[in-house]
Design a protein around this nucleic acid. Structure first.
Lengths: 150, 150
DNA sequence: CTTGAAAAAAAGTGCCC
DNA sequence: GGGCACTTTTTTTCAAG
């Protein structure tokens, strides 16, 4: 993991559709060496995957909400059950168990308020172990990156 | 935007390194038709970009924190100034202005607690317009996807 | 153990139907 | 949407530092 590897990771996190020849040129390496490095970065697992990122607005998910959840029963078993429940929902993009008063934090990508309403029923209804939940609707997205600068 | 386009988008959101021939086969189309569709999806803008996703733990960012911020002055101008400030920080992966008591919500990807400490100074110090902030450290990541199922 | 050049294989591209 | 010839890119091979 040297300077060149880090530069490759930065470039690939910006745009993974660049050709190997381009990347090689950008870091000043021959295509074959460059390819070997990228393969190694993939096999090492530091590169997890190559994916297409959609524009939420154009994919019919223009609405985002951040939900913090306080559970009724905080046990390991019961926290896991709730996480399993939320994880299955397509609208749940991120789900974390967190420290503090809040037990679980969720990021939701939704079509509209109706979709939010429909999602609340299965997740937060009686019997799903939720004591309280608090919703913050996203007004403006100032930054939303997948890149970790190296 | 028909059933085939949606399937292509789902496949590409899972793994964008698949070859066009593979994708064509998966949706039951000829490679040339398939390529035409993918080009259209890119030019339409529904596919925003193709990126490499790193494993945070292996990239030296094993720690995550969700921070909610209440500003002192809630004006448009002053909110924007704070967002501009946080947006510049590499550790800030997501930054939103949100509804409710909280004005801004941040997702941080950090190396360790020391990095968190170092980040708090520039962001939340006197004069940066922050009245209160509340940090939730991520204990477990139950789900963290970039995919919007179509 | 890593690099670079060139050949071979595979994939992407554009034009035609 | 499909088929085919053409171009580009990726991948392997192999010799050299």
């Amino acid at each position: 993991m040297d300077q060149i590897d880090r530069k490759l990771l930065n470039l690939l996190q910006e745009d993974a559709s660049r050709t190997n020849a381009d990347l090689a040129d950008a870091v000043g390496l021959s295509p074959s060496s460059c390819l070997r490095r990228i393969r190694r970065l993939k096999s090492t697992g530091i590169i997890d995957r190559i994916v297409a990122i959609l524009r939420p607005a154009k994919a019919g998910r223009g609405m985002k909400a951040l939900v913090t959840v306080e559970l009724e029963h905080h046990g390991e078993q019961q926290t896991r059950r709730f996480l399993d429940l939320v994880t299955k929902e397509a609208a749940v993009i991120q789900a974390y168990s967190v420290s503090g008063e809040t037990d679980v934090a969720l990021m939701l990508h939704l079509k509209d308020m109706e979709a939010f309403d429909a999602l609340c029923d299965p997740l937060f209804r009686e019997g799903s172990n939720v004591a309280r939940y608090h919703t913050m609707f996203v007004i403006r997205t100032a930054k939303e990156t997948t890149a970790i600068p190296m």
